[in-house]
Design a protein around this nucleic acid. Structure first.
Length: 755
DNA sequence: ATGTAAAGCATTTTT
DNA sequence: TGCTTTACAT
């Protein structure tokens, strides 16, 4: 049960406001999720039926969290409530209204951005467009923009001003045709087609307006035009629309988010109640002051100022590094120190950077020194080659029209069917207007097929036929995947390959099988609990269809590895919504952060500044800021000035000597300059070089004679096998496979035990 | 059809 | 600098 007493007065108002539009401006760490979940609980307690409530988030993670928290507040009272992402809500609507979607069938699949790229490239080929003259990625971007603005190819063509856009228009048109032919939607279609569905079918819209009498939207500042249109259509009748957001945390303009949506809410709903959540429960006063001070340099924002009852806390600490290696060294050393002095755990730390490229040097340092870390970006699980291959098999089995999936697996594993064969098949498919998978059954009728290709193609067709049969009979996705791996020879091929990469791929496939197993189990559970097939609040469809949908709408598996003690490394963007006791904000340099591309444009610079605000407000207790005088980027050495954002933090909040260190001994060095009055960030800290010796691992003279093939044990990574050695002696770089993961360690630091 | 060398090119990202 | 894509030879 929820208690209104747990809320501060403003939060309570937000929760108790019942009918009519409500805008909640929620600063970082102000208990936004609590307000949303309590509000849902309160609506239900007031007698609103849960199936009349729709809560929309952007990410699955946020949806999941909200579902759980509402669950603990209201228990089974919440049955029928929709908590969904924009995309999952729309897919669910589209599937149930499929008869209003001409050209698509219920088994439509969702294309991710790499599938999208593949389709765009093939369209360009057909239109004889030179990929060098028109970057497919750029074209994809323009198409995506158009869809976010709800422009059909025809509407887009009216506004296609220049030569480039006229070409894009041609691609857009063909691209849409292709998607339809493949029975596929891209992410933007999901929203755009739902809006179109509502606009063209008033009775359908009326049904959903009636159903969703109370709507809550999280992160409203991140909505694009299509999402805005969607929400406003649904809310038009009852006007019980509650949006939560923070214009200061709008950092996704580059992908179509329109801050104006939240700024104009009061114009759209003049009767709206506006509440500001300004009390912060997360950070110290110092951290908050720094954040407020930086973001206040932006104009065109809703005036607000975060405050807290938390203690003042430690000053922010900045460090001027010689170069990026020194910066990484400093971070590793600070982490050790904080562990020693304050008993911090690795989980307490996060390293935030502007670009993914910055993580490499830090990783290298952490690896050498044995600091366990977790990277929260880079290649996602489902983007790995072997996983994409398996998914392609599943997709083509589920949707025989999926040309992208087909192209991917036709020659994987190798069966002597190359590009020219593929092109002939696709051409035939297009002419006949039939699904690719059916087309290859008629290999004899496909013109110009080489006799050499015919045999393997027919064998492939037979194989797929068998697997398709299996997919129909078999409800276990796991079993299906196992059969695919076995019968295609995919597994065997990797088994034969003794390289560490192949071993890692096998490991990933095992992981994939455990994902499917978990899914199958869930399906079985549900079968037992809901024999009548009554409405399910989590919208779960068992079997292949449901599995594919879940995979395409959920980017990352949350519980992939059970978060062992590790330091978090991520971009500032991916840190949004998270918090950490200690944060290192690195690369505070002009050209890096703010990025060089944003420096000339006030609008872009303002977004970078909001990004800085987001970064600072991730920290609960301690915040370290660092920049390097010299930095190697893309093979070139840069000399960057410190970030202008550094100057926007009041000097009195920052020190360059960490108070957790003992005061310096006079004997060794002169007293450091700690007066912050005229601090010049272009200068060099005299303490930088002196500090460098602290915390460095002590060299122990000893032998480092490792050999390829030897089994060793590492304190953090466990048991592994040496697969390669580069260099000699203490500095030798040893590559070791730890349970499918290859790590490169330096002999001196690796602390390996032979086993 | 497939393997290898040279060339290009590189914010931020969820769904 | 380090990865991905493309061009070319076999």
């Amino acid at each position: 049960m929820y208690r209104l007493d747990d809320l501060n007065p403003v939060q309570r108002q937000a929760v108790e406001h019942r009918d009519g539009p409500l805008l909640i401006l929620a600063g970082a760490g102000s208990g936004k999720t609590r307000v949303l979940t309590y509000r849902i609980a309160h609506l239900i307690a007031q007698g609103i039926d849960p199936w009349n409530i729709l809560a929309i988030t952007f990410t699955n993670k946020a949806a999941q969290e909200m579902r759980e928290r509402v669950g603990t507040l209201v228990g089974s009272e919440g049955r029928g409530l929709w908590v969904a992402t924009f995309h999952s809500a729309c897919v669910r609507i589209l599937r149930s209204e499929i008869e209003h979607l001409p050209g698509y069938s219920r088994s439509f699949v969702i294309y991710d951005s790499s599938d999208q790229q593949a389709v765009i490239k093939s369209c360009m080929k057909e239109l004889n467009l030179d990929e060098k003259k028109f970057a497919p990625r750029a074209i994809g971007g323009v198409i995506s923009d158009a869809k976010n603005k709800l422009q059909s190819p025809e509407e887009f063509s009216q506004r296609a001003a220049d030569y480039f856009e006229q070409k894009v228009e041609k691609v857009y048109e063909l691209y849409q045709k292709r998607l339809k032919g493949n029975n596929a939607l891209d992410f933007d279609d999901i929203i755009m087609l739902t809006v179109r569905l509502f606009r063209e079918n008033p009775e359908v819209l009326a049904y959903y307006q009636e159903k969703f009498r109370y709507i809550l939207v999280d992160e409203y500042q991140d909505t694009n035009h299509a999402q805005y249109a969607l929400v406003n259509l649904l809310a038009k009748k009852y006007r019980n629309l509650c949006v939560v957001g923070d214009d200061d945390q709008s950092i996704y303009m580059f992908r179509g988010a329109d801050v104006q949506n939240i700024l104009d809410f009061e114009r759209d709903y003049p009767e709206a109640k506006v509440l500001k959540l300004e009390q912060n429960y997360r950070s110290t006063k110092h951290i908050l002051d720094a954040a407020n001070s930086v973001v206040s340099n932006n104009t065109e924002r809703k005036e607000k100022s975060l405050w807290t009852e938390n203690e003042e806390g430690n000053p922010l600490v900045y460090y001027v590094a010689e170069n990026e290696h020194d910066e990484s060294r400093y971070i590793a050393e600070r982490i050790q120190r904080l562990r020693d002095v304050e008993g911090r755990k690795f989980n307490d730390f996060a390293i935030l950077y502007r670009t993914n490229a910055q993580s490499r040097v830090i990783e290298e340092r952490f690896m050498k020194q044995g600091v366990p870390y977790r990277i929260f970006s880079g290649l996602k699980f489902y983007e790995r080659m072997e996983i994409k291959d398996m998914l392609a098999y599943l997709r083509i089995l589920h949707n025989p029209s999926d040309q992208v999936a087909f192209s991917r697996i036709l020659n994987v594993p190798k069966r002597g069917l190359g590009n020219s064969t593929l092109e002939k098949i696709i051409e035939y498919t297009e002419e006949q207007g039939m699904p690719v998978l059916d087309a290859i059954m008629e290999a004899d009728y496909i013109p110009d097929l080489t006799t050499r290709a015919k045999k393997p193609l027919l064998a492939f067709a037979d194989l797929m036929q068998e697997l398709k049969q299996l997919a129909l009979e078999e409800s276990s996705v796991t079993h299906l995947v196992e059969e695919v791996l076995k019968r295609t020879g995919y597994w065997e091929q990797l088994k034969t390959d003794k390289s560490p990469e192949a071993e890692a791929r096998l490991e990933n496939l095992r992981e994939f099988l455990s994902v499917t197993a978990e899914y199958d189990e869930k399906a079985l559970d549900q079968d037992e609990n809901l024999p009548e097939g009554e409405e399910d609040e989590e919208y779960f469809t068992p079997g292949l269809a449901g599995f594919l949908e879940q995979v395409s709408l959920v980017a990352e598996i949350d519980a992939l590895d059970p978060a062992e003690e590790s330091v978090a490394l991520m971009t500032i963007h991916s840190a949004k919504g998270l918090e950490f006791p200690v944060v290192f904000l690195v690369g505070m340099e002009e050209g890096i952060f703010p990025s060089s591309r944003s420096m000339m444009d006030p609008t872009l610079l303002a977004e970078e500044r909001r990004l800085c605000y987001v970064a600072i407000t991730r920290a609960r207790e301690r915040l370290y800021l660092s920049y390097a005088d010299q930095r190697m980027l893309y093979g070139r050495t840069q000399y960057n000035r410190p970030s202008e954002f550094m100057e926007e933090i009041p000097p009195q909040l920052m020190v360059d000597r960490d108070p957790i260190d003992p005061p310096p001994t006079r004997m060794k060095k002169p007293q450091p300059q700690t007066g912050m009055g005229n601090r010049n960030f272009g200068g060099r800290s005299s303490w930088g070089t002196w500090d460098k010796e602290i915390g460095n691992p002590v060299k122990e003279p000893g032998t480092f004679d490792y050999h390829v093939g030897e089994k060793v044990e590492h304190a953090k990574f466990g048991k592994g096998i040496i697969v390669a050695i580069k260099g000699e002696g203490s500095q030798a770089e040893i590559s070791i496979v730890f349970g499918g993961q290859i790590k490169k360690l330096i002999a001196e630091y690796a602390k390996l035990t032979k086993i």
